[in-house]
Design a protein around this nucleic acid. Structure first.
Length: 924
RNA sequence: GCUCGAGUGGUGGAAUUGGUAGACACGCCGGACUUAAAAUCCUGUGCUCUUUGGGGCGUGCGGGUUCAAGUCCCGCCUCGAGUACCA
């Protein structure tokens, strides 16, 4: 009987299911290993061949670790809140939960076919109330905490309130937005609303008016990482700036820890670098500039305080709150016009406009804090309101943007660098000696920075500070299909819902659109539609997509706990994710937010680790390979690729299911589309129609989408698993091409024949294994173990092939050898190996209860080696010599050879290098 | 512009600390089996010259270090990803 993958795969999938083979529980006698896939958003399109790449890799490694004796946690679930289901709901009126369930079912079927060893009893869905109850609960904890910069961790807000009561906020060192200083007496005099408003400036989850990225098409705000090239990541709609009252997360408080702890993570440099850039730490100094004839000062942030004597003007962001106050009457109209124009610009406009210089003089002046000079104040949109203080001291001789601005508006450019020419461009490098800079004259950059900060601090005019580009994360969305907040309002004061009333479930609404007043869809729900209602109204916003995914890896550890989000005992056992596999597109979103929440939960003592993912692998994208046919212009004739030269043809995408190895199935093609039914062809000389090909992203319109379903039908899941791994290194993007799949399939069939007769009966014998058989086996064990340990999954497949080729050559049918080999192969081809394991007489249970073989050095010992003999580094011939020979003996053997004499050509070698077991190099 | 990757046969890729470049597979050429095809098996396959013994050239390009470089160093080029007025 030939290898019948359909029957075998169906059989073992149902075996595993009915035996709950992949159920895991905490077991302190075993070492744990946690392998996690980034869980998918269940879209309507189902999985294409790119999706399973990471899942297969994690499954191989999970099964390997299991066979090695680890207790492996390998769960799967769904990130099931999201925009597509809601957009569909808006169009059709169907509740997004229904669409989502349907899509999940489809995903599950596809995942099941691939033979993954997930413990499905741990499945979770972020949109299920059992789950989002705890997302809401975590939100409450964030709401109830602030960040204490002395303890360098999150602390309960009640501690802060006590401090306010005793001594006000003057000694508090916390990450906050509070600009006023108040005493304990002040605090006591605040009414409830004022107290809460003040606390909001400290809470880690807080409500504030902030500039947000508003997407009118989607009717919601978006986080920075949800915007790609100035357009919404989902849908590609325009995005504009708008000031709105929004929930935010004070992630800034964690900036330094998020940055510093990257060093210990086993992630790729590229992801770490992206996070570093996103956090964007810059060390510098804040300086106060007093506004002339006003009481206010303007605070600027600069990384180059050493250039302070080069300041020629000040620039404020157009949105800066002081602009209104300081603008002189003569300039008022022009300034207002400029502000209006700037506010209309979308982020995208600002980006594409980088080269246009614009700005407006306010007519006001600041006094230079050290020289006492009068300095003009401008506004310009190259200064961003949301970074630093929204104001810069412009030093044209040391900053190119300031330089360009000064040139454009004809402002004086002072040169404070000795012997450096700044007539053409600013000197932006961080070196040089200062001049015309009072007490900084003659100093180099680093020394000058140190000195000027010292002096500014002594005079209370400035302070050494650190700035981060990372902004607090906007946490509310004006959408329906997301977690409701555990918040209600009483007289406009936000209050949290008590734990026993969680979860706040999504209420029924009559439509998923905003209300006529522009309120989010939840505002449509009347009082009785909420499962809990308190105060004057519930919060109408919902949480963003990243809420549920920021902690899901914790819930898998204890998925049905009804009293805690995860028990301490279980999170202590499973601990960090040992291996996390997923796409690199989450570099600054999900991966940063998960780290933030993990650190917070650690600070509060709920878990005992402060980084979620120890090792991260980013799987590359699988690209589609499109096929083309070439149609003669205006005719229904298609020309094979080899014959198109000299003809005017138009390439047309053709469905890749009609093409195999670039050869077109002509009958299928004629049936594909009605207008091709009477097509004629110009064929190659051998009668084939050869198609052209191109690598592109997979998409329906290019007819190049490969679903795993078709391939599993044709070759089986084991072949697909092996093939996806065989394609190349997991991290690399690569084109999908089914050309090679038959090779992998043939490998399995060839392997099958080692174990079975044509009638399907086992041909394994309990004879003595030969030396060669043992050598091949143990060499294979060694290589596979080494490769799996360094996540080199593609080279393992080659190693399997080499072994099977060798066993076939040896006509090996030794039971011990071939059974060991089955265990090696099993993580890649689980159904296949289970079947052969059973056939070989292992009646009881599953192969995965066996243990992974170890290699024995003694079988690997070679007694001779084909020494490459090279002359001047070029290999000329080989000679087989015993490995027991030492350097001198090898030399003697080699010198005596005829071939050596030939290549020496009568010359005396200058030098001979002998590396035993490796190479001989003769230098002439 | 800046940051980070990557460039190896016709194709996907291998070469783990510098030591036989091209493993393994696809594709292709030729052969066996077959009435024929499919399947299977065998042989060859980096380019190039050749008197068929073998020779020359070869890991994006140009230098360098070394007995020896795909691998290390310097300078370029190309492609991909991320980011973008961050003071």
């Amino acid at each position: 009987m030939e290898y019948n993958f359909r029957e075998i795969e169906a059989k073992w999938i149902s075996f595993w299911k009915s035996n709950k083979s992949y159920k895991v529980s905490e077991d302190s006698s075993k070492q744990k290993y946690y392998v996690l896939d980034m869980f998918p958003y269940p879209s309507g399109a189902g999985l294409h061949v790119g999706h399973p790449l990471g899942y297969i890799a994690s499954d191989v490694l999970a099964r390997y670790k299991k066979l090695e004796g680890y207790n492996v946690l390998h769960p799967m679930g769904y990130d099931s809140f999201g925009l597509p289901a809601e957009q569909y709901a808006i169009q059709t009126g169907q509740h997004p939960a229904i669409t989502t369930d349907k899509n999940i079912e489809r995903y599950r079927n596809q995942l099941d076919q691939l033979g993954f060893c997930y413990d499905w009893d741990r499945e979770l869905r972020t949109s299920s109330p059992d789950y989002y109850k705890w997302t809401q609960w975590i939100f409450k904890q964030l709401f109830d905490c602030y960040y204490d910069e002395r303890l360098n961790k999150a602390v309960r807000i009640s501690a802060l309130v006590s401090e306010f009561e005793i001594s006000g906020n003057q000694n508090v060192q916390a990450t906050n937005d509070c600009e006023s200083v108040f005493s304990s007496k002040d605090w006591m005099s605040f009414d409830a609303a004022k107290k809460e408003a003040t606390l909001q400036q400290y809470r880690l989850a807080y409500l504030a008016d902030s500039w947000v990225n508003w997407c009118p098409e989607l009717g919601t705000v978006l986080a920075n990482d949800e915007i790609v090239n100035g357009k919404s990541e989902r849908g590609g709609h325009p995005v504009m700036q708008k000031k709105m009252r929004q929930w935010s997360m004070r992630i800034k408080a964690y900036a330094e820890r998020l940055l510093k702890d990257l060093d210990h993570l086993d992630w790729t440099d590229s992801i770490k670098e992206q996070q570093r850039n996103w956090i964007g730490k810059s060390v510098g100094c804040s300086v106060l500039f007093e506004v002339e004839s006003h009481t206010e000062s303007i605070e600027v942030f600069t990384t180059r305080p050493d250039t302070i004597f080069g300041v020629s003007f000040m620039v404020l962001a157009p949105e800066h709150p002081l602009v209104k106050e300081i603008t002189t009457n003569e300039n008022r109209t022009a300034v207002l016009d400029y502000q209006r124009a700037a506010s209309k610009k979308t982020e995208r406009d600002r980006q594409s406009d980088v080269k246009t210089i614009s700005g407006q003089n306010t007519g006001a002046f600041v006094i230079h804090p050290l020289s006492g000079e009068k300095i003009q104040i401008w506004i310009a949109d190259y200064v961003l309101a949301s970074y630093g203080t929204g104001a810069v001291m412009a030093v044209p001789c040391g900053d190119q943007r300031d330089f360009d601005f000064a040139k454009y508006f004809d402002i004086e450019i002072k040169n404070i660098f000795d012997n450096i020419d700044v007539s053409e461009a600013a000197h932006i490098e961080k070196w040089g000696t200062l001049k015309d800079s009072s007490f900084l004259n003659g100093l180099e950059v680093v020394a000058a920075i140190k000195k000027v900060i010292q002096i500014l601090e002594a005079k209370s005019l400035g302070k050494g500070t650190t700035n981060y580009r990372l902004r607090d994360a906007v946490f509310s969305r004006q959408r329906y299909w997301g977690e409701p907040f555990p918040i209600f309002y009483q007289e406009n004061i936000p209050k949290t819902v008590s734990d026993e009333n969680l979860p706040i479930e999504l209420p029924k609404v009559d439509s998923y659109l905003p209300t006529q007043q522009g309120e989010p869809p939840l505002a449509r729900a009347d009082k009785s539609s909420w499962n809990y209602f308190a105060g004057d109204r519930m919060e109408y916003n919902t949480m963003p997509g990243w809420a549920g995914s920021s902690w899901y890896f914790l819930r898998y550890m204890d998925p049905s706990n009804e009293v805690e989000f995860v028990s301490k005992e279980k999170s202590d056992y499973w601990n960090q994710v040992d291996l996390y596999i997923g796409g690199a597109e989450h570099a600054t979103g999900h991966l940063l937010y998960s780290r933030f929440w993990t650190k917070f939960l650690f600070d509060q003592g709920y878990i005992s680790f402060d980084e979620p993912f120890k090792k991260l692998i980013n799987q590359g994208m699988i690209l589609g390979k499109s096929s083309f046919v070439y149609r003669l212009l205006d005719r229904n004739t298609f020309v094979s690729k080899g014959k198109i030269q000299g003809k005017e043809t138009q390439p047309i995408h053709v469905d890749i299911s009609l093409v195999e190895n670039n050869k077109l199935d002509l009958d299928g093609f004629k049936k594909w589309r009605p207008d091709y039914s009477d097509a004629s062809f110009v064929l190659e000389d051998n009668g084939d129609y050869v198609c052209g090909e191109e690598v592109e992203k997979m998409s329906k319109s290019k007819f190049n989408v490969e679903t795993p379903d078709d391939l599993i039908q044709k070759y089986g899941a084991d072949t697909l698993r092996l093939y996806e791994m065989f394609l190349g290194p997991i991290e690399q993007s690569k084109p999908w091409d089914t050309k090679g799949i038959s090779g992998v399939h043939n490998f399995l069939r060839k392997c099958w024949r080692l174990y079975c007769n044509a009638d399907g009966s086992s041909i394994l014998k309990e004879n003595e294994p030969t030396k060669d058989e043992l050598k091949t086996l143990h060499k294979t064990i060694k290589r596979i173990r080494e490769d799996l340990d360094r996540y080199s999954l593609n080279t393992c497949v080659s190693t399997f092939m080499i072994a099977v080729n060798a066993f076939t050559d040896y006509k090996c049918n030794n039971k011990v050898v071939l059974e060991s080999f089955l265990i090696l192969l099993a993580p890649y081809a689980p159904h296949f190996c289970e079947e052969l394991w059973m056939k070989s007489g292992q009646k009881e249970g599953s192969l995965f209860e066996a243990s992974y073989p170890n290699y024995d050095e003694k079988h690997l010992v070679e007694d001779s080696f084909d020494y490459p003999i090279s002359f001047n580094g070029k290999m000329r011939f080989k000679v087989n010599l015993s490995l027991s020979l030492n350097r001198e003996e090898i030399l003697k053997e080699v010198e005596g050879l005829e071939l050596t004499k030939k290549w020496l050509d009568g010359k005396n070698p200058k030098k001979i290098i002998v590396v035993p077991g490796k190479i001989v190099n003769i230098v002439l």
